[in-house]
Amino acid sequence: METQQKQTGRLFIVPMDVMMDILRIILKNGLRHHIEGINAKENTILIRVFPNVNSLYAKEAMRNIAEILTDYGYYLTGNSSFSPQDEDDDDSFIYNRA
């Protein structure tokens, strides 16, 4: 599971409103990341972060990212998870094939 997490990282849907905060965390802590896709319709990006599992800072940074997104989802939709996409619109991301 852990190995799998090492390889796959953790996926986040990041809305534009908090994108700068999330990028600040990623860049400040030197987290390896990859932008998987862009959803222009929802103004979000799909970003995969590969934290160093041995680093305490990386764990805290991942918690920090998750908390910001949880709070955003909580205030925007009333749910703790941020899922801005419509139920009938499940493929609105333009994926980065690079």
């Binding site: 905060d21 400040k28 305490l56 920090n64 205030y75």
Partner: peptide, 17 residues
């Protein structure tokens, strides 16, 4: 001691709150 992690607060969320 290791420097504690500097928690990043979102200004946008703080404004809503």
């Amino acid at each position: 001691k290791e420097e504690p992690y500097e928690w990043v607060e979102s200004r946008f969320i703080n404004s809503i709150r």
